[in-house]
């Protein structure tokens, strides 16, 4: 013990990563109004993501997507008791400063918004609040963790209702982790170079076989079966963006996805909760989206 009794430490790595641990096995839902936040909390969401437009609308309406209006974030914080997350643009450290002052619990440095910096991500060690960042592969995840991210979210392709990219990204990350665990030290030096990530972090993962932070998955999850599949593929929890509130019956679908995540390995329960949910979000196939319009390619 180095600290003396009663020296309180705020915003330490353990406190930041600790909140991520408590969210595990849960569903984090995108909400754009206080009323939607209420529905999400009532359905059993473990946290809500406050934003102005869900990714499906950002995609269809186009234009620059930015941090939400503080009034909207305030109204959502006032409505619910579960943790509230909000998105800042990649590299936009002032949006992050604003979110910290507003009293959200978690910041998502998100590729769903228009990037503010095409070179640098936010130095997340500078903040008391924890950050979640997206990643499509292990190297990207490790660079974010090196910058201070307390949770990684595999990106998928947000706003599509097509889960194939989410599948690809979580399989890629977990596959690359598995590969590291079989390497000798001389190979790990090369792996670190190839992953463009610090050797210490690479060596740590090679020995533990997992990321040092929680790994959620996101991007295209629209059904209880999608969510359960992500859990079976090794996710610690699931983000659902447009999938809930772009569907025919948000209350029922939200509750069904929560249940499917808890009983992700029990097909009977997943079958039961999948009944009579009404229309899922219509969605678009990722293969129909031209590469420059794919959100997952943002972040470096």
């Amino acid at each position: 013990m180095t600290e003396s009794i009663s020296a309180e430490q705020f915003g330490s790595s353990r406190v930041k990563r600790g909140l991520s641990e408590m969210l595990k096995g849960g569903v984090i839902m995108d909400v754009v109004t206080a009323a939607q936040a209420r529905i999400a909390e009532d359905a059993g969401a473990v946290a809500v993501m406050a934003l102005e437009r869900v990714p499906a609308d950002i995609r269809s309406q186009g234009g620059v997507a930015r941090m939400s209006d503080p009034d909207l974030i305030d109204s959502i914080i006032a409505e619910v008791n579960i943790p509230v997350m909000a998105k800042a643009r990649i590299g936009h450290f002032v949006e992050a400063q604003i979110l910290e002052v507003l009293g959200v619990d978690y910041i998502d440095e998100s590729e769903v918004l228009s990037p503010a910096d095409y070179v640098n991500h936010i130095d997340k060690w500078n903040f008391t609040l924890p950050f979640v960042c997206g990643a499509t592969n292990l190297g990207e995840a490790l660079r974010r963790i090196n910058e201070g991210a307390a949770m990684i979210r595999s990106k998928g392709e947000a706003g599509t209702g097509d889960v194939s990219e989410a599948t690809k990204h979580i399989r890629t990350i977990n596959g690359e982790i598995k590969r590291l665990t079989s390497m000798s030290r001389d190979e790990l030096y090369v792996a670190a170079k190839e992953l463009q990530a610090p050797y210490e972090l690479v060596a740590e993962i090679a020995s533990t076989g997992k990321l040092p932070v929680v790994l959620f998955t996101a991007g295209g999850v629209a059904t209880p079966a999608d969510a359960a599949m992500m859990m079976q593929l090794g996710a610690d929890g699931v983000f659902v963006g447009s999938g809930v509130f772009k569907s025919g019956n948000p209350e029922q679908r939200a509750a069904a996805i929560v249940r499917a995540v808890t009983f992700y390995d029990d097909a009977k329960v997943i079958a039961e909760v999948s009944r009579g949910l009404g229309e899922a979000m219509v969605g678009i196939n990722v293969s129909d989206i031209p590469a420059p319009h794919r959100l997952a390619s943002r972040g470096w």
């Binding site: 013990m1 600290e3 003396s4 009794i5 009663s6 020296a7 309180e8 430490q9 705020f10 915003g11 330490s12 353990r14 406190v15 600790g18 909140l19 914080i77 943790p83 509230v84 910290e100 009293g103 959200v104 619990d105 978690y106 008391t128 609040l129 924890p130």
Partner: peptide, 10 residues
């Protein structure tokens, strides 16, 4: 309060 008030101590 919110996460900014989370802490560790002895």
């Amino acid at each position: 309060g919110s996460q900014t008030a989370s802490f560790e101590t002895d």
